[in-house]
Amino acid sequence: KVMEIKLIKGPKGLGFSIAGGVGNQHIPGDNSIYVTKIIEGGAAHKDGRLQIGDKILAVNSVGLEDVMHEDAVAALKNTYDVVYLKVAKP
């Protein structure tokens, strides 16, 4: 199931950690970017929809399929206060 989640960045950013990407696979044979941690009190935690194990398909208009881990981190960092995440639920 794919959904779009709109998050408003807090003082600590979006409030979640990711793993995965080309050269840094979270699941062997899979280059996808996965949510590995939700920080308590952060934007994602308060919103409640993003969960550990969700796959991040895109940030705003930037696709995160088959990208390097660093590029995924940069895509999440290089955002304004309002961030749209395209997410696939497991």
Rank of each mutant, 00 (worst) to 15 (best):
K1R: 03
V2T: 05
V2K: 06
M3W: 06
I5W: 03
I5Y: 09
I5D: 00
I5S: 00
K6I: 09
L7I: 15
L7V: 08
L7R: 00
I8P: 07
I8F: 08
I8S: 11
K9S: 11
G10Y: 05
G10Q: 10
G10E: 10
G10K: 05
P11R: 08
P11G: 09
P11E: 07
G13I: 03
L14I: 06
L14M: 15
G15S: 02
G15P: 01
G15Y: 00
G15V: 00
G15T: 00
F16M: 06
S17D: 07
I18P: 01
G21N: 03
G21Y: 02
V22C: 09
G23Y: 05
G23H: 09
G23S: 12
G23A: 09
N24C: 13
N24F: 13
I27N: 13
I27A: 10
P28I: 10
P28V: 05
P28S: 07
G29N: 08
D30A: 03
S32F: 06
S32A: 08
Y34R: 05
Y34A: 02
Y34I: 14
T36C: 14
K37T: 12
K37Q: 07
I38F: 03
I38H: 00
I39E: 09
I39C: 11
E40V: 08
E40T: 14
E40G: 09
G41I: 02
G42W: 03
G42F: 05
G42I: 00
A44C: 07
A44Q: 01
H45A: 15
K46D: 11
D47K: 01
D47C: 07
D47Y: 02
G48P: 02
G48I: 00
R49V: 12
R49C: 10
L50K: 00
L50C: 02
L50W: 00
Q51A: 12
Q51T: 15
Q51K: 15
Q51L: 11
I52L: 12
I52E: 13
I52G: 06
G53A: 05
G53P: 00
D54C: 07
D54H: 09
D54L: 02
K55R: 12
K55P: 01
I56A: 00
I56E: 01
A58G: 15
V59R: 00
V59H: 00
V59A: 09
V59I: 15
N60T: 02
N60E: 05
N60A: 03
N60R: 02
V62E: 15
V62M: 13
V62H: 15
L64G: 02
L64T: 12
L64Y: 08
E65P: 03
E65D: 14
D66Y: 10
D66A: 12
V67R: 10
V67E: 04
M68E: 14
E70I: 13
D71H: 10
D71A: 10
D71I: 06
D71L: 06
A72Y: 03
A72D: 01
V73N: 14
V73E: 14
A74G: 09
A74K: 11
A74F: 07
A75W: 08
A75V: 10
K77S: 14
K77H: 08
N78W: 06
N78F: 06
N78L: 07
N78S: 13
T79L: 08
T79R: 06
T79Q: 10
T79G: 12
Y80A: 07
Y80Q: 09
Y80M: 09
D81L: 07
D81Y: 08
D81Q: 15
V82K: 11
V82T: 13
V83I: 12
V83W: 03
V83Y: 08
Y84L: 12
Y84W: 11
L85D: 01
K86P: 00
K86Y: 06
V87A: 05
A88H: 13
A88P: 04
A88S: 11
K89Y: 04
P90I: 15
P90Q: 14
